[in-house]
Simulated assay, not measured.
Amino acid sequence: MSKDHFVLTAVEPLPNYGLRLTYADGQAFTVDLRERIRTTSFLAPLENATLFAQAKPGFAGRSVDWVEDELDLGSDNLRHLAVEQAGGIGHERIWSWLEDTGLTLEQAAEALGISRRMLIYYRDGEKPIPRAIWLACLGWEAVRPKGSSLPLHVPSAQEYAALHAG
């Protein structure tokens, strides 16, 4: 699979601070930026509807640009946000989970019962993350199993606190 899943081929500004994004892998997403613009200081200039309407693909399709080299958003971050807004699980969650747990790719793949290659597909956004995989990540985080045996119950609040202490 190629890395085209983060390369934008088209950007269409929509009413109310939305964007229709089309990627080189043929996928199209709609993303709502109202809240981000309202709460992120560097995006405040985009409250100007005329400026917002000037959105276009940036260099090599790796961003949406409004003002070149000054005001842009990464195409990978926008895809993640669009997936999350549509109710999916964005690839950045796997990155964060790996960092938070300190697991290697091999350890994480084994913990989830999938191949290392499949975990890389999910982490890199090349394949959508199934709900069951994300729930397994959350479950692993909750119980932090030691070794290959899985716990037989969900930890109590006290057990959970002890598992996550320092």
Rank of each mutant, 00 (worst) to 15 (best):
42 F>H: 08
95 W>M: 09
139 G>Y: 02
22 T>E: 12
82 A>Q: 07
50 T>Q: 07
57 P>K: 01
151 P>L: 00
82 A>M: 02
112 L>I: 10
83 V>L: 02
48 N>L: 03
50 T>F: 06
110 E>Q: 15
121 Y>S: 06
51 L>S: 12
133 I>S: 09
132 A>V: 14
68 E>R: 04
140 W>Y: 11
166 G>H: 13
138 L>R: 07
133 I>E: 14
149 S>L: 07
100 D>H: 07
45 P>T: 01
35 E>M: 03
26 G>S: 10
50 T>K: 02
14 L>N: 09
59 F>Q: 09
152 L>Y: 08
166 G>P: 14
15 P>S: 00
59 F>K: 13
67 V>A: 09
19 L>H: 10
138 L>Q: 15
116 R>G: 10
131 R>N: 08
138 L>D: 14
159 E>D: 13
16 N>P: 11
5 H>Y: 01
103 L>K: 04
164 H>I: 03
89 I>A: 02
137 C>N: 05
91 H>I: 02
16 N>G: 05
73 L>S: 00
73 L>D: 07
135 L>N: 11
108 A>E: 14
29 F>Y: 05
5 H>T: 06
92 E>L: 12
47 E>W: 06
153 H>R: 11
16 N>W: 01
76 D>S: 04
135 L>K: 13
19 L>Q: 05
150 L>I: 09
67 V>W: 02
31 V>H: 03
69 D>W: 06
43 L>M: 07
1 M>G: 07
131 R>T: 12
129 I>N: 07
80 H>W: 04
12 E>N: 11
158 Q>W: 00
126 E>N: 03
97 W>C: 12
28 A>P: 14
38 R>V: 07
27 Q>M: 13
153 H>M: 09
5 H>W: 01
65 D>E: 08
91 H>C: 08
65 D>I: 07
22 T>Y: 03
128 P>Q: 05
81 L>N: 03
105 L>K: 08
118 M>I: 06
10 A>E: 12
56 K>Q: 11
88 G>H: 08
42 F>Y: 02
24 A>M: 08
142 A>P: 15
125 G>M: 02
166 G>K: 15
160 Y>I: 09
151 P>M: 00
140 W>V: 12
27 Q>T: 13
77 N>M: 08
88 G>A: 04
119 L>K: 11
91 H>Q: 00
111 A>V: 14
162 A>F: 01
37 I>E: 02
50 T>P: 15
145 P>L: 00
67 V>M: 10
107 Q>W: 04
92 E>H: 15
156 S>L: 14
69 D>L: 04
76 D>N: 07
109 A>V: 11
98 L>M: 14
17 Y>L: 03
55 A>K: 07
105 L>A: 03
147 G>V: 04
27 Q>D: 10
133 I>M: 05
164 H>L: 09
154 V>H: 00
7 V>Y: 05
86 A>R: 07
99 E>F: 00
71 L>D: 12
138 L>K: 11
106 E>C: 06
32 D>V: 04
92 E>V: 13
37 I>N: 06
71 L>V: 10
73 L>W: 01
144 R>W: 08
62 R>F: 03
125 G>V: 00
7 V>E: 09
118 M>T: 12
122 Y>I: 02
146 K>N: 02
146 K>T: 08
42 F>T: 14
140 W>F: 06
140 W>L: 08
73 L>H: 03
143 V>T: 15
148 S>Q: 10
57 P>L: 00
94 I>P: 15
28 A>W: 05
15 P>T: 02
74 G>N: 09
111 A>M: 14
